[in-house]
Write a protein that binds this DNA or RNA. Structure first.
Lengths: 243, 243
DNA sequence: TCTGTGTCATTGGTCCGTCCAATCGACAAC
DNA sequence: GTTGTCGATTGGACGGACCAATGACACAGA
């Protein structure tokens, strides 16, 4: 009866945008498009793909927001050489739509970060350890709440990097970003001494290659942080704001 | 000298798209836009935001690809009521750009899934346990490789759901999706007996509320799977294809 | 020769209007 | 009451236009 432009039973994925994204994926997967490479101009892509430039721009905009590529007027479009920020926006909307709670985020941290910290103790390079030390120094020297939170995040970020697990690294960077955003307002009544003490313990354990000690210290650190900020179990939706 | 349209030192975030996404975030955060709600028509949004419809379409397309909302011609645009697929595309590109290896994905699984399985043993509802049983049945009855992989994934998916941790749930759904995609071709030479045996052990442990047993069984399951498929430590980039 | 400068083609950013196709609701016909 | 039809609405795609930023290049000046 109805002429099915889309195969029956299949998802109506015929949207030009989705197909173009698939083609770009294939280009990367096949090696035709290497990370860091410069893409053809939008007008050329539109002609080659046989679609309108507006459609191409939608696709490129999707990938740009995800951090897959970056565009500069007058210059061109470049594929990112790593997926640094690729989980940031999605995590924001994850918190927004599912209205994730601090409870849930802390549980996730408690489940994974101690393990990551143990890995970090086993694998940390001299550079990683130096980054950890600098983060502690930065926290000690911090004047404003903003500086403190920044240094706090840098410490955990350094641990994720040292763990050598890029997936968890990017995931938890996103989670911390969201979490710190929601803690900004109530951080004044939270002492700086607690986290600093735990950071020092974790740092020592990692430097001493004491995986178990590092794991345990991180576990206590997160549990402590949770007890300090989180009686409230409400969702974080209202805290997420555009940056 | 140069007339700085953008504040000096600030990121050139003037892109209309990024700002509009921020405004939409705020609308959700403030509750003005509830999950499941219907958005105004594109033409109206364009007028209200004071931008062109093409710009609005770029924004909506970004959010649609991420799974934040869905659009239907002749009907309208609806905000998703949950972020089911929000991490799928990002994980695909994460694997592509950073060329993540099976080794890295398995390590991540090994780090987290046993813990999630323990949580599942503590929290699983009757419905969850039923889903687990069905997944095992589906695997036993599977004729084709495709069916088998589907049932396999359904089992793990049920565990993630039972764990009650939505972040890990969505993250690992994405990881499994990518991993299964790359295992499809070599799955013929992988026996079905091994995973099935482990699945039964895990299922029993969860049903018995044996968190430690469940954790250990899942740990052995993943380690076993890793040893079966993964001598090779090469990146998965070439395996990722559009669906 | 080297340096600075200005020109100009390229390229992404945005806007405009148009047409198409799917959907939904109201209304007419049976 | 049911069915069919028509029209308004809405997302999907197209084509063209202009702007602003960029970079490459030729040219003039030191």
């Amino acid at each position: 009866m109805a002429k099915t432009a889309t195969a029956p039973g299949e998802r109506p994925d015929n949207r030009i945008t989705a197909r173009l994204i698939g083609r770009i994926k294939n280009l990367i997967a096949s090696g035709a498009l290497a990370p860091g490479a410069k893409l053809p101009p939008e007008r050329t892509l539109a002609r080659d793909f046989g679609v309108n430039r507006a459609s191409v721009r939608q696709v490129l905009k999707v990938l740009e927001i995800m951090g897959v590529l970056s565009q500069r007027v007058g210059d061109g479009t470049y594929l990112s050489d790593s997926a640094e920020t690729i989980l940031n926006e999605p995590i924001d909307f994850l918190v927004l739509l599912d209205d994730l709670s601090q409870h849930e985020l802390f549980e996730t941290r408690l489940m994974i970060e101690p393990e990551l910290t143990a890995r970090a103790a086993e694998r940390a390079t001299a550079e990683d350890i130096s980054a950890l030390r600098n983060a502690i120094l930065g926290m000690e020297r911090s004047k404003t709440t903003r500086e403190r939170l920044h240094a706090d995040m840098a410490f955990h970020e350094a641990i994720f990097r040292a763990s050598g697990n890029r997936i968890c690294h990017l995931l938890f960077r996103g989670i911390h970003r969201t979490l710190l955003m929601s803690m900004g307002q109530l951080s004044d009544r939270v002492s700086i001494e607690h986290p600093l003490m735990f950071h020092r313990r974790i740092y020592s354990a990692i430097r001493e290659r004491d995986a178990e000690g590092a794991r345990k210290a991180m576990q206590e650190h997160i549990a402590d942080a949770r007890s300090l900020v989180g009686q409230e179990n409400s969702g974080l939706r209202r805290h997420v704001r555009s940056r």
